[in-house]
Design a protein around this nucleic acid. Sequence first.
RNA 1: GUCUUGUUAGCUCAGCUGGUAGAGCACGUCACUUUUAAUGAUGUGGCCGAUGGUUCGAAUCCAUCACAGGACACCA
Length: 505
Amino acid sequence: MAFENKFIQQRIEKAQLLKDAGFNPYSNESKRNTTIEKYLNVNSDIEDKEDKRDENRHYCVSGRIKLLRIMGKASFAKIEDESGMLQVYIARDNLPEDFYNTIFKKNIEVGDIIEVSGYPFVTGKGELSLHATELKLLTKAIAPLPEKFHGVTDKEIRYRKRYLDLIMNAEVRKTFKTRSKVISLTRRFFEDKGFLEVETPMMHPIAGGANAKPFVTHHNALGIDRFLRIAPELYLKRLIVGGFEAVFEINRNFRNEGMDATHNPEFTSIEFYWAYKTYKDLIEITKEYFQYLFEHLNLPSLLPYGDMEVNFDNFVEIPLIESLTTIGGVPAEVVNDKEKIVEFLKSKNLTVKPGMNLGQLQGELFDEYVEEKLIDPTFITEYPVEISPLARRSDDNPDITERFELFIAGREIANAFSELNDPVDQYERFKGQVDAKDAGDDEAHEMDEDFIDALSYGMAPTAGQGIGIDRLVMLLTNEHSIRDVLLFPAMKPIHNEEKITQEEE
RNA sequence: GUCUUGUUAGCUCAGCUGGUAGAGCACGUCACUUUUAAUGAUGUGGCCGAUGGUUCGAAUCCAUCACAGGACACCA
């Protein structure tokens, strides 16, 4: 039953008392004429005045009451709007007869949203405040706020009731503002470079463009299943075929896989595709992109992340095979020999799936021995062709691709390559994926004949890249769980025992 | 998916090897016209996550379930 909590009952009664006294507890007649931040800025000169006040100035601010100190015939309240926090001084004798005692003291409390008019002054303790001459309730909060000092720290409550988390924790609001800025800066960066923002389908007939298990939904009108997209790649490349030369999309992908500190079933990425460029150009634009972000977010190039320090003046570039020996410490005679890698991994008590090819085994070695050691931004290049089904082969060595992944603070941030535009090679690689799928790899690609068809018309030489926005934001805000950079992270529904019993009866 | 830790008042947390609940904040009442987590006095508030079991007796021990955190696996 809703509203059964005794505190809520008590506050509903207060709202009723206000109505009875002729005060609308949910008034929408707001006269606010400034924000708290502006108020504090504009009136910062008050403390230099002789009597530390200016009764000729008049402002009206609104906000939620976060703290309330009632001291007999006068009170202090801290109210907060999106821009900041302001102390308000409310004295009985400055308000209409009886309003202070019967309305304010009895029926207005922490959590309520009020509007206060008055003039600026500085208190004896030196805090610029607002001296109230008028006070009005805008919204009665019938649920009490969490404890004023500790706030709400329970992660389950914070994620399920993000609004409460946002009310109580200013640093959480800051993180999400930074997230918003990152997305907006990203958009501006690519637009300024002449990229065209596009939207491609979220529901795909074939889930392609990545190795992942898709969510399935059903389209009744057509009587067919649809897959929520796992990546926009194949559609964006169709647009390059169509003649757009630089496109990007910032949007959600969906993967039906496990959840943990770095994985949410829906996550945001930017993918961009750039005709007549190669992965080498992508390395350059990536460096430029980070520089742009750091400049506009005012971040230090020596960025702290947990107990690490990431040096963004030190971008490193190293081929994957080389990284296995120089960074991973894997013996040189092992890294290019399938049997020796299997032997090596087994000797380290690591499980090796049967039937893995050389490229996959090298990928295993990389994940096991190199990835977590890549703290400063590192472009790992020259990926084996077996684990890069959509990337162009190197002209010098058909076993490797013109690809890189960017790692920062031990985590993959971006994946990029010169795109495979040979339709026959792409067809063969899809077939290889289909064989892998038939052999039990349920994350292997499916054959996408329509995409082959598109490539058949000719896709200009193109380079494309994907950047995980959530992980990027984690890095830039020093957050260590993806849930802390998602406003509403995926949560299991709360099991309602009562409801279930009723349904069973 | 596996392992592990947790779940006690609206919130933050105590509660020892079993004897049916405590604090602070919040809330109610009273006092207080410059406070800073205001203060002082006083009071209300709980099916101890759910269901079973062991026991004379369970917040406490055991089992199952639910949800969450962390780690691992898979992946981005």
